[in-house]
Amino acid sequence: MTLTDDRVDEKTTTAHDEPGDHDLFSHYARKTDIERSMFEGVDITALCGKQWRPSRDFTKFPVCPTCKDIYEGMQD
């Protein structure tokens, strides 16, 4: 499994919407999943478990703290 430092934006409405603050963050996901979503328009899953279809500018949102913790733990 290869993970990258790529942050991904998220759509405000998804098939798996759950109430919470995770819609206010950029999330980490596998690069291959991000590319697949861009070409095929499918939902992807972030490290934290959030499912969404990337569509917004990820640079405008802070990184999801759960994704960040998981990613940093994988670096050890």
Rank of each mutant, 00 (worst) to 15 (best):
E72M: 12
D21E: 14
D6F: 06
K11E: 15
F58E: 15
E10W: 06
D21W: 13
F25H: 05
T45D: 02
D6A: 07
V63T: 15
R36Y: 11
D69Q: 13
R7G: 00
C48E: 00
E72V: 07
R56T: 15
R36S: 13
H22A: 05
R53S: 09
T59F: 06
R7D: 01
K50Y: 00
E10T: 15
I70A: 04
V8C: 08
H27R: 03
V8T: 11
P65C: 10
I44N: 00
T4W: 01
D57F: 08
T4F: 03
T66W: 06
V42D: 05
K50I: 02
P62E: 13
G73K: 12
Q51G: 01
E10N: 15
I34L: 05
D33Y: 07
F39Y: 13
E35D: 15
G20W: 02
F58Q: 14
A15H: 11
D23T: 07
L47A: 00
T59Q: 08
R56P: 05
A15E: 14
D57I: 11
I34H: 01
K68P: 08
T59W: 07
I70P: 04
R7L: 15
Q75A: 12
C48D: 02
Y71T: 08
F58G: 11
D6M: 12
G41H: 00
A15R: 13
C64L: 06
G20I: 00
D9Y: 07
T13K: 12
T12G: 09
D43W: 09
K68M: 12
P62C: 12
H22R: 09
L3G: 04
W52F: 15
L3K: 09
L3M: 14
T14R: 10
K60P: 08
